[in-house]
């Protein structure tokens, strides 16, 4: 059975409680309506929150579906350590998938550029993994406040058999009644955190004492500066250009992905209270550290149409 850890927490603030109730409702609804759901798990803070909510939703039962991690092979090593520890502790079923084509053709963010690399190792990999498992529903931790095209995403987001999203032709969603009727081969992506903001996620992580990857907390770490981003220089796979030098800096990450594409921020926030304080006064949104969103307006919408999460 799924064991709760802490029986003595103070009650949640009403707005967090309402968000939690909504997420639990969505988890239960999808688990009951679909034959073969899976939960996308990226090891980041939103995924950690999603996982925590899933454990709550089904308690005292264990989570009745597997977790799927699309592993590009270029994740921070701390993420993989954290993931493996958590899977063991909570006795979860994890499927880690890496695109075999990418491995064979040696696709890397350095040799193929961030756009093509992301397309093969993330978008194509996700499509392959979903086809492999024949999943008819996939939970994701996307939030509507992250990016403009996500603001119109449904809670149950319909996908064609080739995983395409048609933003012009979405099913209307009224009240909290979700339409889960699909034909064979079609699927739904379900987003229990749709109505959460970054600040909500952090407040909830603090209130619920949810474990997260230590890279979110500031620490003195080696970095290089590349294309205006601070790249962590702890990994042997990072090749330095002649003009690049490793510097020690107090940094942390607001979002985590592949280490060569994730920019760190200078920060002194060493615990959750300090992170929340930092966000309250932050003037830069969290996706700013992501190379893939920065090409042009609408770039996320294009990736999403292609099946990117």
């Amino acid at each position: 059975m799924n064991e709760p850890e802490n029986h003595q927490k103070p009650p949640l603030e009403p707005h967090l409680k309402e968000l939690e109730n909504e997420a639990i409702f969505i988890f239960r609804e999808v688990a009951a309506e679909f034959e073969n759901p899976v939960m996308l798990y990226s090891v980041g803070k939103d995924s950690s929150t999603l996982l925590h909510l899933a454990r709550k939703a089904f308690y005292p039962e264990k989570i009745p579906f597997p977790l799927l991690h699309i592993n590009t092979g270029w994740k921070f090593s701390q993420m993989i350590e954290f993931r493996d520890e958590l899977i063991k502790r909570y006795e979860l079923e994890l499927i880690s998938f890496t695109n075999p084509r990418g491995v064979n053709e040696n696709v890397t963010p350095f040799t193929h550029g961030s756009a093509l690399y992301t397309d093969i190792m993330k978008t194509e990999a996700l499509r392959m993994a979903l086809d492999d498992g024949q999943y008819d529903a996939a939970f994701g931790g996307a939030r509507r406040d992250e990016e403009a095209s996500r603001a119109k995403e449904r809670i149950y987001s319909f996908r064609t058999p080739d995983h395409r999203w048609d933003p012009r032709n979405q099913r209307p969603e009224l009240w909290s009644i979700y339409n889960g009727m699909i034909k064979k081969g079609e699927s739904v992506r379900a987003f229990p955190l749709s109505n959460w903001t970054e600040s909500d996620v952090w407040q909830y992580i603090r209130a619920e004492d949810i474990p997260i990857v230590p890279l979110y907390f500031a620490k003195n770490r080696p970095v290089i500066e590349r294309d205006g981003m601070l790249i962590l220089a702890e990994d042997k796979r990072l090749e330095l250009a002649p003009n690049e030098q490793i510097k020690q800096m107090d940094i942390r990450f607001r979002t985590l992905g592949c280490f060569p594409l994730s920019g760190a921020i200078k920060s002194e926030a060493r615990n959750i209270d300090e992170i929340i304080e930092e966000i309250e006064v932050a003037t830069v949104s969290e996706r700013q550290g992501r190379a893939i969103d920065r090409d042009q307006a609408g770039s996320m919408e294009m990736k999403k149409r292609e099946g990117y999460f």
Binding site: H15, R144, D145, E147, A148, S149, R150, A151, K152, P167, R168, Q170, S194, N195, T197, S199, D200, A297, G298, E301
Partner: peptide, 26 residues
């Protein structure tokens, strides 16, 4: 107006959800 079509046409064609908060309420 997050969708490209909306940006191009300058109109809102779908429901978009937005979030903000004050010290009192979200």
């Amino acid at each position: 107006d997050g969708l490209q079509a909306e940006r191009e046409q300058g109109i809102t064609i779908d429901v978009a959800y937005r979030y903000f908060s004050t010290s009192k309420r979200t």
